[in-house]
Amino acid sequence: MPNPYASLLAEVPVTRREIEIGGTRTAYWVYGDDADTAPADPRPTIVAVHGFRGEHHGLEPVVAHLRGIRVISPDLPGFGETPPFAGQPHDLDGYARWLRAFVEVVAPDAVVLGHSFGSIVASAAVAQGLATPKLILVNPIGAPALEGPRGILTRLAVFYYLAGARLPRRLGDALLRNGLIVRVMSNAMAKTRDPDLRRFVHEQHDEYFSRFADRDVLHEAFVTSVSHDVRESAPRITQPTLLIAAEKDDITPIEAERHLATLFPDARLVEIPDVGHLIHYETPQAAASAIRDFLRETAGR
């Protein structure tokens, strides 16, 4: 299926890099002019953190619509091309420490963006002292996943990931990478009625949703994703914060996102209609527009 955002992405220069952070060789991608070749560039830089089971490719449709803004997108440890942490659990503290170190070394003072599980990691890192002028959360996890509109499906997911971790390794790995189950997940999240866009979403999940290191990493990260949400960090985040929420999100209902916005000392909420938990695939232009407006309106702060 042709990538509907390919022509825009083709106009964005991209550089792959690696750096040792938190005991793992972190792979990351720089979209736009590389800071090493344009060190005096006054335009903002965004460090973008992807969601659970994803990797940097998932945020590329948003990146494609952020022309003129440098975006640095790493693969989380244990996903994509970044190896797992060595000798430490893949829990929220570990991911938050890793993100703090990554931003401090690669892009000091960059704006931090997190999508879905990345919103939990990003908000925790900022609450723990990550120096960033602004925070952007796309499809933020604003309430316990087990209490969402599809809490029953989430409980089934708990059983699924536990089974994958407890079965003999070969069987467990096959279960977690099963294409039919990945397609069920993709169908549950997709809201678009455009058949071409829907096929693109499914192909993206088929291609990138199983690029995790092993079943143990995946299970640890899943437990982290359902054991935490952004609410626990929100009151300690003083930076201007943008929440980009979906009106049809089955993981965090829009009412919970509205409440989440009130927990931040300085936050604004943008609601996108007719989309669920896949803003980055289905409505990336609307998300990019909200990000641009936010950066422009808070430029002097």
Rank of each mutant, 00 (worst) to 15 (best):
224 T>V: 03
139 N>E: 06
151 G>M: 03
292 R>S: 15
74 P>H: 03
105 V>R: 15
177 R>H: 07
178 N>E: 09
215 R>K: 05
49 V>C: 08
26 T>N: 04
74 P>C: 07
121 V>C: 01
62 V>Q: 07
82 T>K: 03
55 E>H: 15
87 G>Y: 09
37 T>W: 15
283 T>A: 11
33 D>N: 14
8 L>A: 13
204 Q>L: 13
111 V>K: 01
25 R>V: 12
186 S>K: 06
132 T>N: 00
143 A>G: 13
245 A>F: 05
252 T>S: 09
185 M>I: 04
162 L>Y: 15
84 P>M: 04
299 A>R: 15
280 H>M: 08
72 I>L: 06
33 D>I: 06
14 V>A: 15
65 H>E: 15
280 H>E: 14
60 E>Q: 14
272 I>M: 09
47 V>T: 12
88 Q>T: 00
238 T>I: 13
110 A>R: 04
281 Y>C: 03
232 E>A: 15
127 A>K: 00
67 R>E: 14
291 I>E: 08
101 A>R: 13
35 A>C: 10
138 V>F: 12
7 S>M: 12
237 I>H: 00
35 A>Y: 06
255 E>Q: 14
107 A>H: 03
238 T>H: 15
70 R>N: 05
125 A>S: 09
210 S>E: 13
100 R>K: 13
248 K>P: 05
70 R>T: 06
130 L>D: 04
20 E>H: 06
174 A>D: 09
268 R>W: 06
263 L>V: 03
246 A>S: 12
178 N>D: 13
187 N>S: 15
181 I>N: 05
215 R>Q: 11
104 E>C: 12
64 A>Y: 01
199 R>T: 11
130 L>C: 02
84 P>E: 07
77 P>A: 02
